[in-house]
Design a protein around this nucleic acid. Structure first.
Length: 291
DNA sequence: GGGACAATAT
DNA sequence: TATATTGTCC
């Protein structure tokens, strides 16, 4: 790891902090390589994508970058659509990354090509003004969850209510319901952790277990849990007005869940994780509007 | 209206 | 299984 790549032709100041924890170029499959090995492709009678040379890839990424730069300009707000920053950005450190072994688990995602009988009801809506568009379900990726935890921690368990959390998280496309639902589950988890008071990251709750529970959350628990609360001290943070560096993130809704990138869309944001798997018909991005 | 929570649906 | 939705109570 750790070798500064300065391939970028543009002059963006890099925020190296954001890059910590990101996979290095070596960890990623080069764009010039097919996502599916030829053998596999032929085994499933998948017609392989046209072969791409590095030049093609380069050109494509330059296109993307220039499109972004001209379109988004230096401006701040970007609507969803194609917010793909040339630079990798991540947030914060992740000290202990205990990965069992060196081998990255590569999961081949099988799409059930089962024809979605997908009764696509009244769902064809281009009009952003209409909120009847049913948005695909949110996937709480570790990154997203971390942000969630951070916000909750800063608010203090006491002030952490869905609406506030949602606002502070500053994630486009995230709704109060999303947060409420997740918060519900998170509280359950916290309760269990307190009840056990001992560390025993149960195998379950991988997501939660991977994110340290901030001390400020051990708050009064109100006795509820059961006794034994851990430790006593807690510092409380007053609700802060503008807590987080809003890294303008967006929720990617409904990425085409097709093995291949159609338009040449590349997902990246708050890390590769923010994805909505489901049937996203047609255009997937842009939850837009909303709230 | 909004939050907590449980039950239920997808 | 994870997340969404709904219903009830406060």
């Amino acid at each position: 790891m750790g070798e500064e790549v300065k391939n970028y032709s543009h002059d963006t100041e890099r925020v190296t902090e954001w890059e910590i924890g990101l996979p290095t170029a070596d960890d990623l499959t080069p764009l010039s390589q097919p996502l599916i090995p030829p053998e596999l492709a032929s085994a499933f009678s998948i017609s392989p994508e046209p072969y791409r040379t590095l030049l093609d890839v380069n050109r494509a990424s330059n296109d993307t970058i220039s499109a972004l730069r001209s379109g988004g300009g230096g401006g701040g707000s970007q609507t969803l659509s194609a917010v793909i920053e040339p630079d990798e950005e991540e947030e914060e450190e992740e000290p202990d990354r205990e990965n069992g072994s060196g081998t990255e688990c590569k999961k081949l995602r099988r799409l059930d090509s089962a024809e979605d009988a997908d009764s696509n009801m009244q769902n064809n809506n281009d009009d952003p003004s209409s909120r009847s568009v049913k948005r695909p379900r949110l996937v709480w990726t570790p990154q997203l969850h971390k942000r969630f935890v951070d916000v909750v921690a800063h608010l203090g368990i006491k002030n952490a209510v869905p609406k506030t959390i949602m606002q502070l998280m500053n994630v486009e496309g995230l709704t109060r319901e999303n947060v409420a639902s997740h918060l519900q589950k998170y509280r359950l988890y916290l309760k269990r952790m307190q009840g056990l008071s001992n560390e025993g990251p149960s195998s379950s709750d991988q997501l939660f277990a991977s994110t340290p529970v901030p001390q400020s959350l051990h708050d009064s628990g109100g006795g509820g849990g059961g006794g034994g609360g851990t430790s006593g001290g807690h510092s409380h943070h007053a609700p802060i007005p503008m807590p987080y560096p809003p890294p303008h993130m967006m929720a990617m809704l409904g990425m085409p869940h097709n093995g291949f990138n159609n338009g040449g869309f590349q997902q990246r944001d708050w890390s590769s994780g923010f994805s909505y798997p489901h049937h996203a018909h047609g255009h997937g991005i842009t939850p837009s509007g909303d709230k």
